[in-house]
Amino acid sequence: MIEIDHVSQIFRTSGRQAHLALSDISLTIEDGAFVSILGPSGCGKSTLLYIVGGFVSPTEGVARVKGRAITGPGPDRGPVFQEFALFPWKTVLGNVMYGPRQQGVKAAEADAQSRRLIEMVGLKGFENFYPKELSGGMKQRVALARTLAYHPAVLLMDEPFGALDAHTRTRLQNDLLNIWERDRKTVLFVTHSVDEAVFLSDKVVVMTRAPGRIKQIVDIELPRPRRRAELLLDPRYQKYVVEIERMIDDTSEDGLRP
């Protein structure tokens, strides 16, 4: 369980001004839940994710994982960054093996596990490619495999599909759901897409424009496993999307990108 307890974040900008990025956020995420954070850009979604990751310590409040205050990063929480952040000097296989090797898994075993993961994310045959040689969607798949490889209990995903074309995005969403349905990790998923949030999540946390506050939390009670084609025609799905879009229009003038 992840508890975010009255967390606020103030950044000092270069002009010595204080900028309130997150204001009094409280949120509880159950084990095995798929929770999306939805909000316009600049509302502090990434910052919230970094706080749970332990990369940023909050100005006020605490974040806890399994009851213990988060003081730094750890292999129990695996980030997948919007920027991929792959190691460019390592091949696809080298990137995916990095975590397991660091945790002391024997080379042969890490190799075999990583090859299986690479196959699972649909990159069989690309094991010896360098990140430079991959497209954006492929890099995102490697980033996901690299994080899954060290078995974090919590996945922290920051707009992982934000930069991808619609087709690739849909494929990766389906793949992610399949993976998640298999091993039910806790997922904290940042997005600015309402469709994506409703399609993937058990819970959608809608945030307000800066300073980021929680506007509302919507439970998505749609059956799983979810099939995109069925869901798009499902009036309950449509109702969630419209409801959440209205909520966002309430708080922001320029709204969200679809």
Partner: peptide
């Protein structure tokens, strides 16, 4: 060196000196 790369390393359990040698140096 991209900070997120160092963060990724930290999440995998690399200590600060390890990150210096195994991430900053090759990057």
């Amino acid at each position: 060196v991209e900070e997120k790369m160092l963060w990724s390393g930290a999440a995998m359990g690399l200590s600060a000196p390890q990150r210096m040698i195994r991430i900053v140096l090759p990057a």
